[in-house]
Amino acid sequence: MTPGDYLSAALLIMGSLFFLAGTIGLLRFPDVYTRLHALTKADNVGLGLIVAALAIQASSWAGVVKLVLIWLLVLLAGSSVSHLVSRSALHRGVDVWKG
């Protein structure tokens, strides 16, 4: 394994742990708003780290740009969806959990 491989492996494992954090938050957090916090932020960081790890392994610059493009699209989808879902929930009178 090259030094690049070790860095990639570390990033991949960290990224996966963020996905785990997102899922734990999804299961543990008390209402839909807090679950959205967990899912949106943790999963996007997780995917970002995985994309970074794969970019190190990429054989061409075009491949790197494509990876970044994929990440940006998921970011856009994630933040838009979390806004839409929370807005709909508020309109439908889903209460905000307070301590």
Binding site: F18, Y33, A42
Partner: peptide, 18 residues
């Protein structure tokens, strides 16, 4: 943001005050 929410999710007492 990711680290912060991950810490709260993993924390046994889940320190959130929405």
């Amino acid at each position: 943001g990711g680290v912060d929410v991950a810490r709260r999710a993993f924390h046994p007492r889940m320190p959130i005050a929405p």
